[in-house]
Design a protein around this nucleic acid. Sequence first.
DNA 1: GCCCCATAATAGTATTACTATCTTGTGACT
DNA 2: AGTCACAAGATAGTAATACTATTATGGGGC
Lengths: 229, 229
Amino acid sequence: MAIGIQITLNERLFLRDPQRTELGKKIIKHSILLIDEIGFEAFTFKKLAKRMSSTEASVYRYFENKHMLLLYLVSWFWEWVAYLIDIHTMNISNPVHKLKIIISTLVFASKENPSIEYVNESVLHRIIIAEGSKAYHTKAVDDENQEGLFLNYKTLVNKVAQVVLDIQPEFPYPRALASNLFEMSNNHIYFAIHLPRLTDVHVQDDSYDEVEKMLEFFASKMLGIQTSK
Amino acid sequence: MAIGIQITLNERLFLRDPQRTELGKKIIKHSILLIDEIGFEAFTFKKLAKRMSSTEASVYRYFENKHMLLLYLVSWFWEWVAYLIDIHTMNISNPVHKLKIIISTLVFASKENPSIEYVNESVLHRIIIAEGSKAYHTKAVDDENQEGLFLNYKTLVNKVAQVVLDIQPEFPYPRALASNLFEMSNNHIYFAIHLPRLTDVHVQDDSYDEVEKMLEFFASKMLGIQTSK
DNA sequence: GCCCCATAATAGTATTACTATCTTGTGACT
DNA sequence: AGTCACAAGATAGTAATACTATTATGGGGC
């Protein structure tokens, strides 16, 4: 099942392509686990190297710094979600149905059958939820954007915006609706777990059903479509 | 005009109340300016002290670390927005009208007549937009939440959620709608400036009219109310 | 005139965020 | 079989960060 999936990322995200070597894959694998455990602020290349039984200097040969590594993980995640959306909506022509599938793909990204052994998609999803926004809340955002480091996310948002326009060609804020669905999904999962008074949904274990229902509700209200049973 | 405004904040946010001393006020004032200039990651107490012609050790007597200082600034900002909303909606009984005022207060928070000399509200608004979400995206979020460090924001969100319920008592997601309005406001101002493909609105200089219009559109769609001219 | 206490001045530590250099081991090519 | 290339390991070193501790100074109140 892992065959055929290729996640292609901007080459400027890394110094040496981590997908091409064993050490590279180990860096991806363990950085996901370690960031999830101790948080991005406390995460350092030294700790990562120790955990992997490698050295700091070796990690630095793959990524310029931990910010670039985060950017890499975030890009990887969105590229993966885009891939999932593509295969799930491939044969769907009804855009309303398509949007519904997009929402559930997004919310349940972590539950998909893992496709690549060195990436724990479920843990990566948690990282995106907790740390994802730090990838673009930086002083370097404009330079990095110019280098195309956010292309994956922007492409995905625009893909969804196109579906919105297919549903309602005159809708005035297709991209804002699309990006808001993505941001809301992450935010409200996070709120439900850590700041429950900021939301109305609940999550238990890793069941995000209520989040999905809420996003469907919001989307259908925005686009004036019937909520299907 | 500065008379009578008192911003009261959780005492656990600081070690010594910065509002009570000259040095404290200088810390608030210059930290706002410096974080805006160099970004939160590059910001250090040493640089702040140098800028203020004080010492690192003195700053540490007021705030445990830079994260607590950010939390303080964020709380200050939301408390201030809550205050503005209160005075602007004081005599309004129609909840639809109230919500509209809330949206414009939120979007134009930075344009309000400055009330406290040591806080540049316009610059502070920029910080909230660019760095605000880092205040709660931390491993310590649960502990800090338990200590009440996010109360200001949660209270504000719930105040707006109550207005939503006044408009539509059966609305299933009042808090999510409220928090989403706040998050969207900040996000889309940021997107418009740095990642324009993630939104449909534009901002020029500090004119956020399009953001206001969009939030009104979203809110009225969600609540099924007429968009007023 | 003395006490209190905030601030300044200074120093010191562990960790972070790197950069540099040198060695070793493997695989590929001749 | 020999050497070449090159990735990774080992080691060291530097400047900055994130603090903590100690002592000195100076002004306001009693």
